[in-house]
Each structure stands twice: as structure tokens, then as C-alpha cells.
Design a protein around this nucleic acid. Sequence first.
DNA 1: GCAATAGTGTCTATGAGACAGTATAGC
DNA 2: GCTATACTGTCTCATAGACACTATTGC
Lengths: 241, 241
Amino acid sequence: MEPLDTALYDRPSVTVDVVVLTLRGGCLEVLLVRRKEHPFLNYWSLPGGFIWKGESLDEAAARVLRHKAGLEAEAGRTRRPGGHPIYLEQLYTFGSPNRDPRARVISVAYYALVEQSHVREISEESGLFRLLLKDEENVAEIYDAKGKKYSLAFDHAEILAVAVRRIRGKLSYTPIGFELLPERFTLRELQAVHEAILQKKLNKASFRRKMLASGLLQPTGEFERGTGFRPAELYRFRREA
Amino acid sequence: MEPLDTALYDRPSVTVDVVVLTLRGGCLEVLLVRRKEHPFLNYWSLPGGFIWKGESLDEAAARVLRHKAGLEAEAGRTRRPGGHPIYLEQLYTFGSPNRDPRARVISVAYYALVEQSHVREISEESGLFRLLLKDEENVAEIYDAKGKKYSLAFDHAEILAVAVRRIRGKLSYTPIGFELLPERFTLRELQAVHEAILQKKLNKASFRRKMLASGLLQPTGEFERGTGFRPAELYRFRREA
DNA sequence: GCAATAGTGTCTATGAGACAGTATAGC
DNA sequence: GCTATACTGTCTCATAGACACTATTGC
């Protein structure tokens, strides 16, 4: 077997960028990190990194999640601190020839769904930003808590747009809203997650019926406490199904 | 701006592989090419190629479609010989560290939907093969016209499995079946496409209602000829919608 | 009792499947 | 007339939205 002649072709660098999504205050938010290098010095950007030798794409994404987002992970099986895995899925691969001004860099984008309490608080180097995607737009908009708008490094605003569209589409046939909630949650909380992602109000009775009929929710027999009104039952996601 | 230090990281080669799907004899088929090099010498494989400098991933996929599958294309806008574009979409990126025994090769897979008459006839170097994906399997099976089964090069049987699952999912919320048919077609032909992809019989009246209600079909006022039974009206896909 | 939300029941509209019935081509 | 398929009408069933009604908590 002769060695592969790679000199004839472009030899791009390949990175993995991870869109870490969470829910806070009824809004979809994304974890961004501040760049410490040129180009786009001091711009906010998606956490990412180059692929290492001997590492699969999934493993690289889990490593980025662990090192850059502080989310515990095992090789290939990223886990929440609590124990069960963080939702992590490949999104799309971005490879416009000039998306990085330094060199040819192809980015395999992933997205992760994380419960808000597991994400580090905002700091100088990283933070959660509100994520807004208008219909018909192909770039997402990013705001901090004060409502200030930011431009992102590279084509990361486009990657975010693809991520939001993907999760909206996915939600319409899969109830992945769980992944943004603690292990036990009420149906009201789950409905709020769906409403925040889909950006529209849902019918309460219908939402309950559909969720319970799916067989994916397991009632725990326990209830909320100290709500000031009738407490709702807590459910758990049946991951085996 | 300092140059990117790429020596610290793995520098994989990046290829594009295209799953060209078509419909023949009521079955989903895929275009494969025979390898002329090691590894997997003489094995059938997906048409593919390395990414060139200055070329986007979409453009690379269109080029592979044009050169290796003989399907006319313009930069970024692959077109059928007749005039309207061939459906071409990014599928998934495969990057297991040992998927190519020679070197680290990451493959960005695309899939294309093509009318059967536009695909070259079977030859020594390329041909159409019947494509079968069993439930719960993560590799597809490949058969020639005589029913002989083949093993594919690299992880291409896995790529095909992902492609079949993607098109099945897509069909349930988008009527991409057109893309496998000539410009004008009957509702019976369209239904046959859906049945072949989804691997199940559909209700005729219901299928008609749904398709006509979608507003995506334009009646031409013309009819089939020489069928031996009542001829059906020919429809056209309204691409502007 | 009041406020607020949990959880249920009922009506309606919509859309899919089943199936029968009429229409139209070649023979 | 016969056959095969096109195309339509109707019934039923499942599901979603609308909305009202009862239940349960803290105050």
C-alpha cells in the first residue's frame, strides 16, 4: 500500500466548534468565549479547538465541551455533573475558503443542550448571551444581559443560525426540551422550554396530552414545594425509551 | 496578524463524498465507482475527491458530481441537463481516526437526488446498485441487478445508512420526491417514489389530498398517453414556492 | 375567601386511512 | 363489454386547539 500523496491537494486545518445552548429567563442563550488571539482579538466566539491525532470528531467535541465550557465529559460520553449524559450532536460543517483569514480552516460544528445551572457564571473569558434569530435571516443576533448587541468572530453568527433552526425543527418531532432542564421537572417547565425555543405560545391541555401520550415521561409521585399555588407533579425523562 | 501555527495539531486531509441516489424499478439505487487504487483496490465506493484550494464544500461536492458522476453542474449551482438544479445537500461529516488506513482523512458527505435517466449506464468503472437498509442496522447493504451483495470501501456503507435515514426523515415533512422524477410526472409516479423510499404502501386518496393541498404541485393540463387505461394528468413542481 | 396554577373534560376543526363509486383510456 | 387506473365523495378515527370547569396550594 503506497502512502497517500497529500501534496497535490489543499491541506486544511479542521476544528470543532460547539454551540452550547441553555435556557435562562425564558430565553435561549449560548455560551461564548472571548478570543485572546488575532484575528478577531477580544471578539466573542464559539468554544472550539483543533482536532487531535487519534481522536474522533465526537471525542473532539466532548473535549472542547469539557475544557472550554467546564462541562464534565468522558471519551465519547459527555456527562452532566449529576450523572446522565449531556446532549451533544453534530450540526453541520462549515468550509467557505475564506472563513478564516489566516489559513484554510474547516469547522465541524456541534451543538450541546445543557441545563443552565451547569454552565459557569459569566466572567472575563466566557459568558452566556441571549440568542435571537429572525425569520428569513441567515445570521443570529447576540445580546448581553444589558441588551447590548455583539458581532461574533468568523462565521459564528451563521453557525448559530443553523443551530437554532436545527433545534426548532428537532423539537417538532422529538421532545429534546428535557435536556435543558434538571432531572426532575414539571410539565409547566417543559412547556416553557418548548415555547422559548419555538417562539410561540402552546396550548396547555394539548401539550400535556401529547407529552404524556409519548410515553417518554415518567411521573415520580413527588411534587413541587412552596409555590404559593397548587404544586405540580415532577416528571423524569425515560432515557431508556 | 501572526500566521496560524498548524504544526501543533493533526493536519487531516478532507474529502467530499457524494451519495447519488436515484430510483429504478421501484427501488432506491446509489451510484458507485470502482476504486483503481489501494486501499480497497477494485472495491466499489462512493464518488468523492479531495477539496481544492479556494473551493467551498458545496462547490467541491458539485465538482465531484460533475466529474465523477457525469452530471452537469455550474459552480455552486449543479443543474440537471434539462435545466433545473440537481438537489444536493450536505449530509454529515465522518471523521473516525482510522477510517482510512493510510492517513487521517475526514470526509464531508453530501447526498444528491437525481432522475434515473440522467445517470450513466453501468460500466466497468461505475454503476447503479440497489440500496437496502434494515431497521436498527447502521450499515446499508448493496446489491447488483443479479442480487449479488457487495462490501464497500472504507466506511461507505455507514455513510449510505445515514443518507437513507436522512431522506426518509426529510420525506415525512418535505416532498422531495420530485427530485427523482422527470420535470412532468403523474401523482401515481410521485406516490411510487414515496413508497419506495419509505418502504411502505400509502393511501392513494390521502396522498393526493395532501400533495394537492400543499400547493407545491402545478397541474399542466396535459395527460399521459398510450397507457391502456385512463391517462393521468401531468403535474410540475412549483420550485418558486 | 382570594390568587394562581394544576389538572381534566368537552366541543370543534383538521387531516389521514378506509373504501366505495364514477370516469375514461385501450383493447 | 372488459380491464386497469384516474379521480371523487363519504365515513371514521386520531389529534390539536379552544375553553371552561374543578382541585389544591399559600396567603
